[in-house]
Amino acid sequence: MSKFSKGKKKPSPAISTASLPDIVFMLLFFFMVVTKLRDSELMVKVATPFATQLTKLEDKSLVNYLYIGRPVEKYKATYGTKPRLQLSDKFANINEIPIFLERFRVKIPEAQRTKITTSLRVDGQVTMGIVQDVKTELRKANQLKINYSAKKKPE
């Protein structure tokens, strides 16, 4: 009488794994796009402060990074505990900033050079003296677009 057959069980077919590579590739591309290979090992401790009025840095290829902080445990014996500047993968003096910027600038097409942003990744517990010196040097090198790197303050 009933239209629906109840008792009769069909043998369930095996799930096709043919689309598994597609799923994995999708994940792979996602991670390739959102992540950035860390090019430099941090030799200074950088814990950026919290803030609320944040802007996102859009084009990562147009950003260069300056790190300022106190040397990590490993380098304390040689470099002391005073805040230091790190450029790419080594400690640097303030007067090496123009060369560092110029090296970055030549890699960028001329039309986009005005859009270069310098991201200052500075430890929250550093005094302003060294930050001020770096800012002055950036102004002298005519690199005026800067970004104080900060984390979003939890509500």
Partner: peptide, 23 residues
């Protein structure tokens, strides 16, 4: 996929953007 998962770190690129005055 595992290679990229291991070697990469998601860096939060956020901050306060400031325009410095020319020197």
């Amino acid at each position: 996929l595992i290679f990229f998962l291991v070697t990469t770190t998601i860096v939060e690129d956020k901050g306060i953007t400031v325009k410095l005055p020319p020197w």
